[in-house]
Structure formats: C-alpha cells, structure tokens
C-alpha cells in the first residue's frame, strides 16, 4: 500500500544535493561498522587464554627425581610432558640414526641441550592427532602411539606411521645441573 510513498521519498527532494545524502549514508554505515568491529574483538578475544592461564605457562622441574633410564611424565599447559633420562644405549641408537632416512630430518644433538644429551624433554602429544604415545613400544625403541600406530625413535623422531613431525621439544632451559625451567 505504501509502495508509491517509498518511491516518492527515495527521490532526491527538490533542490537537495544527492551527493550530500550519499555522504550521510556512507558516514553513518561506516561509523556503525567501525563500532561493531571494535566491539567484536573483545567478544572474540575473551576466548583466548586468560591471564591466570598464561601465568601458569612455565614450570620448573627437579631432575634428580628421574633415575637413569627412567621417564617422568608431568603436566604442562594441560598436556603431558616427558622428561627422559636416557641410557647411553638409547643415545647411541639415536645418534646412529641421524643419517637414516627421516620424515622430519633432525639430528639428535638438535633435540637436546649441548652437553646434556642424557636429558630428553618432549611434549608427549603425538603430532598426528594428539594422543599420548607410550614408551617402549614400536619398532624403533622409542615411543609408539596407540591411536593410529606412529613409531618414534629414542630421540622422539617420527620413523613410521601417519604422524608428520617429530615429538615437539618445548622451549626450556637448565637453571642448574639438576633443574630445568620449561616454558
């Protein structure tokens, strides 16, 4: 019933400048879009880790708790972290395979701190889809992921199976000979 009114009112009125009206439209829509966009960011960012979660993002660990040939699993950033005190045989096996055909080529030395080859620190999350690999299984003397059969060697490198990458080494440092800070 009001279609004629719509048509009539959309026409620029007598003597008015249509470009001024266009400017008002663009300015109003731009202001509304800018306001909406600046409001969207807080609503998106609130799902990112909160300050107290980030405050727990690093942890210290006393290495004297881990005997030779033993592995301790701790929780770091909600995931398992393997701290392994490797035997000389495991280190030798890992170094020997540096020249083998690797899916994600890395030498054993690159995965440990200089002079601390016995300490291997790994994020215990399979690089395929995130399951926790178990030590002592698989064909390479290292870890084996029960979910989809990825085999890792004694350096935590991927050797066989669907996982694309080596088990990740987190950022960590030695505070002393017996203490590491992870994260």
């Amino acid at each position: 019933m009001a279609d004629t009114a719509v048509g009539a009112n959309n026409e620029p009125e007598h003597g008015s400048d249509p470009s001024r009206r266009d400017f008002i439209y663009i300015a109003a829509i731009a202001a509304a879009a800018g306001g909406a966009a600046s409001l969207v960011w807080p609503f998106v960012d609130q799902m990112n880790p909160s300050a107290d979660t980030l405050a727990l993002a690093s942890t210290e660990f006393d290495l004297t708790k881990v005997a030779d040939g033993q592995q301790v699993t701790l929780k770091w950033r909600g995931k398992p972290l393997f701290v392994r005190n490797r035997t000389p045989a495991e280190i030798a096996s890992a170094v020997k395979d540096d020249s083998a055909s690797l899916k994600d080529p890395q030498t054993d030395a690159e995965r440990v701190k200089p002079g601390k080859a016995q300490w291997l620190v790994l994020i215990g999350s399979c690089t395929h889809l995130g399951c926790v690999p178990t030590f002592g299984g698989g064909d390479y003397g290292g870890w084996f992921c029960p979910c989809h059969g990825s085999h890792y060697d004694t350096s935590g490198r991927i050797r066989k199976g669907p996982a694309p990458l080596n088990l990740a080494v987190p950022k960590y440092e030695f505070l002393s000979d017996t203490k590491v800070k992870i994260g």
């Binding site: 609503f43 609130q46 909160s50 300050a51 107290d52």
Partner: peptide, 22 residues
C-alpha cells in the same frame, strides 16, 4: 563460558581480573 557455579564468587573475580576483556 567463564563462570563456575561451584566457585561462583571467585570465578566472577576471575572474569573481572583475568579473562580478556572480562
């Protein structure tokens, strides 16, 4: 998403202090 009915008062303070733009 951030409120915890089991620890209500503290979770509201968590929203105020820790959650981004909480």
């Amino acid at each position: 998403m951030h409120y915890n009915v089991g620890d209500a008062f503290n979770s509201v303070e968590h929203i105020m202090r820790d959650v981004n733009y909480g």
